[in-house]
Design a protein around this nucleic acid. Structure first.
Length: 352
DNA sequence: AAAGCGTGGTG
DNA sequence: TCACCAAGCTT
């Protein structure tokens, strides 16, 4: 496979020119070839949204964000609650908090202009090694080494690397670096990721239509579909919790903004107790005639399963909550809630 | 440096 | 139904 580093970049670029996906944050290869660059703001926004998230899930959020906040300055000026509400449902909410921090740094300290090198980008909140390299390559056509989950998988198969992730990361990064060309590095980066997303897929890869088939060591060895190897993950424990949903007589709902740190940080949620493997004491947020709802909300987070019991109550206009605040009905959008909280609302709403 | 951090689609 | 997976970052 000594010829791989020489042959692969041209094969990948040729494949990309014919098969590049049409994505709203992307400049088509024909235009890129003529020197047209995408808007760094849109590249940055899309890359942050795409962290651990599928293209299908990102599309609508990207459209909503760019319509509501067309520039980094506009986003920087937005109230926190509006941005967190717009991000609701996309997950990994630290991304939204860092998105705002980053927008404000770029707007306030960089004149609204993103740094044009990977090192410069890397210093910004929410931009790690992958995202810095991706923006540098895609927005500024710098020959940065872009390594995401797709690239790791493609490299592990191309070079038949059996070392399990995450230990294999340096080795796979070195392989990716060896393939990164000086010409059209932005298109190259997107080509490898597109290939991983559409051909060299995690399960049942379509080796028969792969432009690199003839050069792939994993294909030759028959190991490609089983790569990359990964170290086994811990099983998810079950945690239980309790949430209180109160509706005031004018239709307002009692919600609280969760603390910035930790799970669902900075998001709206129903008051309640801690979530743990054994039931925790959870005093009600307001004095009322609470009633238990039958059933429970089931939801799975990254590292545990949750079973959430619900208590509901109607309260008068004189209610004085010790936690949270009443959100007027006209202002309340269930879509502003993270998914587990929206599930709780959907289950409880019929009880009012 | 291992763990914490969401969600929806898929087989 | 359920484990696995997706354009990772932070601490």
């Amino acid at each position: 496979m000594r010829d791989l580093a020489e042959a692969a970049p041209a094969l990948l670029l040729d494949w990309y020119d014919r098969h590049a996906r049409d994505l709203p944050w992307r400049v088509p290869p024909a235009q890129a070839l003529r020197g047209v660059r995408p808007d760094p703001y849109r590249v940055w926004l899309s890359e942050v949204m795409l962290q651990q998230t599928t293209v299908a899930a990102v599309r609508a959020y990207f459209a909503a964000f760019t319509t509501r906040w067309p520039t980094v300055q506009a986003l920087a000026a937005a109230p926190d609650a509006e941005v967190m509400g717009e991000w609701a449902g996309l997950g990994y909410y630290a991304r939204a908090r860092n998105l705002l921090k980053c927008a404000r740094v770029v707007s306030d300290d960089h004149g609204g202009v993103f740094p044009d090198t990977a090192d410069g980008l890397r210093t910004l909140p929410g931009i790690g090694s992958y995202t810095a390299a991706a923006i540098a390559a895609i927005a500024f056509d710098r020959p940065a080494v872009v390594v995401d989950g797709n690239v790791e998988r493609v490299m592990a198969r191309l070079f038949d690397v059996h070392t399990p992730l995450p230990a294999a990361k340096p080795e796979l990064t070195a392989k990716a670096a060896a393939l990164t060309p000086a010409e059209r590095p932005g298109c190259h980066a997107q080509a490898v990721m597109d290939l991983g997303a559409t051909v060299c897929t995690p399960r049942s890869p379509a080796c028969g239509i792969c432009p690199l088939m003839a050069h792939c060591a994993g294909r030759a060895a028959g190991t490609a579909p089983d790569l990359p190897r990964k170290t086994q993950k811990q099983p998810k424990p079950v945690r239980v919790g309790l949430a209180y949903l109160a509706r005031r007589s004018d239709g307002a709902w009692l919600l609280e903004t969760r603390p910035d740190k930790g799970l669902l940080g900075g998001m709206l949620g129903w008051p309640g107790g801690d979530w743990a493997e054994t039931p925790q004491a959870a005093p009600p947020p307001v004095e009322a005639d609470w009633r238990d709802l039958p059933g429970e909300v089931r939801h799975t987070f990254t590292h545990f399963h949750l079973r959430l019991a619900l208590r509901v109550a109607d309260v008068g206009m004189d209610a004085q909550p010790v936690r949270g605040h009443f959100v007027p009905a006209a202002q309340f959008r269930p879509a502003d809630l993270p998914t587990v909280m929206r599930k709780a609302f959907d289950m409880a709403r019929g009880a009012f």
